[in-house]
Amino acid sequence: MGAHASSASASASSALVSADWLDAHRDDVQIVDASWHMPDLKRNGAREHARTRLTPQTVFFDVDKVSDGRNPAPHMLPSAKAFEAACETLKLTKTKPIVVYDTNGMFSAARAWWMFRAHGWENVKVLDGGKPAWDARAYASDDAERAEEDIAAHVDACARAMRALGTRAELVKTKREVVENIQTKSFQVVDARGAARFRGETKEPREGVRSGHIPGSKNVFFGELLNEDKTFKPVEALRQVFETSGLDLSASAKPIVASCGTGVTAAIVALGLHECGVEAAVYDGSWTEYGADAQCPLATGPAA
């Protein structure tokens, strides 16, 4: 496990817990599998969950289904009312802590963590290193085959819960706000995509999306925040990565908004900033929404 993982579980301010901590508290928390994979990998999180999960009580949180289905951008945050309905379908409550993980180690779990917090669920933690960290400690998993149609029924029920759109939470930024910020510079923007995508040197994976970045934004590839085992680096190392990119993490600094391709890895950056004591918002639509709009200003090359 990474150097930060074991110490994180002892800190009340940290959003991370170690596999050791989770094993010791597995009966005291609600465990959520929020595994999501890039479409080109052709992996299905629900199908994998049906084959294996941390405990028999673990539920599957589908990042794509628990979303605003009316928005053309992928897995956009649903309204607070719709999110609560989805959580009720999954039998999740605010009376017990929630621990979210994914099978990649650290990828979509951060997105789910951010979604819960954006809707007022504060007692939510992330398993540092995800299922690989759990497996590395040789803790028992529940490998009893679940009927895929049962998982699908839960997912479909969540999808049906996505009804009327509501107001956005304060941890969420919209395209309009991001565009206005280019002139007002009221908050800092950090892009979690790789450097080549940020600089506009490679084609975007989604058709119709331009290459480049939001003018004035900084670039912190989310992978720079993680150890090889996908646990987070120590706080001191995280701060160094952020500050080297040009972000100001001081108490008097402007707020920070994280962006990426579709709002998934931006949440990893937001989680890393949280570990540094900085609460960051996420631009929900991220570059897939922004880059597809020809009216949005675009920059290429390194960060200014």
Score class of each variant (00 low, 15 high):
residue 48 E to N: 02
residue 49 H to G: 04
residue 49 H to N: 03
residue 54 L to V: 13
residue 56 P to N: 04
residue 57 Q to N: 14
residue 58 T to K: 04
residue 60 F to R: 07
residue 62 D to A: 06
residue 62 D to I: 08
residue 65 K to Q: 13
residue 69 G to Q: 11
residue 69 G to L: 12
residue 70 R to S: 13
residue 71 N to P: 00
residue 72 P to Y: 03
residue 72 P to V: 06
residue 73 A to I: 07
residue 74 P to A: 05
residue 77 L to I: 15
residue 77 L to K: 01
residue 78 P to F: 03
residue 79 S to A: 13
residue 83 F to S: 04
residue 85 A to D: 10
residue 88 E to K: 15
residue 88 E to G: 09
residue 89 T to N: 13
residue 91 K to M: 10
residue 92 L to S: 09
residue 92 L to I: 14
residue 92 L to Y: 09
residue 92 L to H: 10
residue 94 K to F: 00
residue 95 T to A: 14
residue 95 T to D: 15
residue 95 T to V: 03
residue 96 K to S: 11
residue 97 P to H: 03
residue 97 P to I: 03
residue 100 V to S: 08
residue 102 D to W: 01
residue 103 T to M: 06
residue 103 T to Y: 00
residue 104 N to W: 06
residue 105 G to K: 08
residue 105 G to I: 05
residue 105 G to F: 00
residue 107 F to V: 02
residue 109 A to S: 15
residue 110 A to D: 08
residue 110 A to P: 09
residue 110 A to K: 07
residue 112 A to I: 05
residue 113 W to S: 04
residue 114 W to I: 01
residue 114 W to F: 12
residue 117 R to N: 11
residue 120 G to T: 08
residue 123 N to M: 01
residue 126 V to K: 07
residue 128 D to F: 01
residue 130 G to I: 02
residue 133 A to S: 14
residue 135 D to K: 14
residue 139 Y to D: 02
residue 140 A to H: 01
residue 141 S to V: 12
residue 143 D to A: 09
residue 145 E to Q: 12
residue 146 R to E: 08
residue 147 A to I: 00
residue 147 A to H: 10
residue 148 E to Y: 15
residue 149 E to G: 00
residue 151 I to S: 07
residue 154 H to S: 12
residue 154 H to N: 12
residue 155 V to N: 07
residue 156 D to W: 12
residue 157 A to H: 08
residue 158 C to W: 09
residue 160 R to T: 10
residue 161 A to C: 15
residue 162 M to C: 14
residue 162 M to S: 07
residue 163 R to T: 15
residue 163 R to L: 14
residue 164 A to N: 11
residue 164 A to L: 12
residue 165 L to P: 09
residue 167 T to R: 14
residue 170 E to Q: 12
residue 170 E to K: 14
residue 171 L to Q: 06
residue 171 L to G: 15
residue 172 V to Y: 04
residue 173 K to G: 01
residue 173 K to Q: 11
residue 174 T to H: 08
residue 174 T to A: 11
residue 175 K to Q: 12
residue 176 R to P: 00
residue 177 E to R: 07
residue 180 E to S: 12
residue 183 Q to L: 11
